[in-house]
Nucleic acid binder design. Structure first.
Lengths: 299, 299
DNA sequence: ACTTCCATGAAGGCATCCTAAACTTGCACT
DNA sequence: AGTGCAAGTTTAGGATGCCTTCATGGAAGT
């Protein structure tokens, strides 16, 4: 029963194919195939079985895969204890983030990290809510968001921490009649022309709530994802749109709070238990939470 | 941070010297010395330091040593889950036991194990109470006893389970005036000639309790350890002695209960957490507890 | 039928873990 | 002080085992 094998099974379960695991761990599929054989020989049980083009875990494989988390977390705790005894946390923390939240949070984080021995490796990606969880395989921390709850879809088994709750406002061009309002109800905006996001993407559920609350079908003049593009279209008066309050820069538009429907997203940092045990990762997570609390308090 | 290194540090802490660990794991001290270096290089911390003739763990070494238990237990749980999924527990269970309790318990255990796929490897040793804990390094289960409590001295960090509580009776030769009594008080036996055990060995504390209760100093005509020898001396009328009720065979003497002082020992099975996770070990432990309960109930 | 994707198998390179033997250090005993 | 012993370390060399390369065989999709 070797940790290497537990890790392999876990990765295989998560990534699906030997090739994917091989790429992620900088080895060849052949190596992993041989490791699987070795593990099966040592345990005397089949761990995988062929399934269509790839592999499927057997019941024993599932047991190892799920047990791996406990074992790796225990090892990580020991490592963390050693790091703690040695003084300041150090090392590289790999962060993956959705762009808008990253823009709002990371400058302050990097600033406060300056001078320390922690370095940050950053990647950003714009995904559907449920896809952020998978990125924790490649990053120590992933800054995701959740529209309906405080844990993003698919992140149930992971460590998660709410960094901030960010209101989603209605962006209207400066000259627009609604721009002077201090708050809007669904009925106020049901007749507007909307710059929307595709179904399944962030904020789409809020638009659907507006439709549910008013009974109307919104006039979606265009569906795009990139917030920068949305901002410029709103500025030109093409329509109104939903934009997150903290991570939208000033421009020729105003952000007006939307009341009467749940119009808020949770910015959540998620990560694998074993990764989060690392002192450096934990320190960054604490910092994120602190900066996030500042957003909620200060605006 | 490799499990092999954690295990090495744990063993080193327990056994004290590299040589002892090497002997126990069928390797040479040289191999272990090299492993220690490798671990120190990988962690960037000193794990051991020379101390008089041997080694002492540094703070970092202590952290690894104590963290090892968690990690190994987590691994053992995974193994146990696989075993459980595979059906009947199997394998070899190594038991160490104090002779008297072994004689009382193990025949029934072996009988009920017959036909199964568990084999027992048995060793017996007669030790002071505090020395049994150390034997869990070499055996999966150790049957020890505790005179004052339900956990033997030194077994605090181990898994322990009380198998039986065995009264310690006064053995008197058949023709002796006290042989007809159904119970004895300290005052009844304070004036007898005693076949005693050396100080620090089993039952010595009971004799001291008798002295404390009566104020007398017992007449210790001889001090020996082996119960078989004690039995034969009692039979010849050399004196009276303390003997455990369940594990003393019939002979030319009677066992008379002693009242007024705590005259009972707990038969306790102890073992390391990671070892006890094994299905087969757990099965044997359950069996021991069951047989032990039968002793207490039936006599 | 062809291509693509995925897993597997054999052969060989290379790291690493271990043993053996000689050396060093510290303690105890005379 | 000298000897002996116990424990750890060092070096060299051998065996094991992990991984890569290259080649093979199925299973889907086009």
């Amino acid at each position: 029963m070797e940790v290497r094998h537990l890790e392999l099974l876990r990765d295989l379960k998560e990534r699906g194919t030997l090739g994917a695991v091989a790429a992620a761990t900088y080895r060849t599929p052949s190596a992993l195939s041989q490791q699987l054989r070795t593990a099966e020989r040592e345990l005397g049980v089949a761990l995988v079985e062929p399934a269509s083009r790839g592999l499927r875990l057997t019941w024993a494989g599932e047991i190892l895969a799920s047990g791996a988390d406990d074992v790796l977390a225990a090892i990580a705790r020991v490592q963390a204890a050693v790091d703690a005894g040695r003084g300041q946390p150090a090392g590289t923390v790999r962060i993956g983030t959705l762009p808008s939240a990253g823009a709002a949070l990371l400058p302050a984080v990097l600033e406060r990290l300056a001078g320390g021995r922690i370095t940050i490796e950053l990647e950003d990606f714009d995904l559907a809510e449920a896809d952020y969880a998978g990125r924790t395989l490649d990053h120590d921390l992933v800054i995701a968001h959740s529209l309906a709850a405080d844990v993003p879809l698919g992140a149930e088994g992971l460590v998660s921490r709410v960094i901030a709750r960010e209101p989603i406002d209605v962006a209207v061009a400066t000259g627009h009649p609604l721009a002077a309002r201090t708050a809007l109800e669904p009925a106020d905006v049901a007749g507007e022309r909307w710059i929307a996001v595709p179904r399944g993407f962030p904020f789409a559920t809020i638009l659907e709530s507006v439709e549910a609350a008013t009974g109307a079908t919104l006039d979606r003049v265009i569906e795009i994802r990139d917030n920068r593009l949305v901002e410029s279209l709103v500025s030109r008066g093409v329509g109104v749109a939903l934009l997150p309050r903290f991570s939208t820069p000033r421009g020729d538009y105003r952000l007006v709070p939307l009341r009467g429907v749940r119009a808020v997203r949770s910015i959540v940092a998620i990560g694998r238990a074993d990764r989060v045990e690392r002192q450096a990762v934990r320190a960054v997570l604490d910092l994120l939470a602190d900066v996030g609390a500042g957003l909620n308090a200060g605006g």
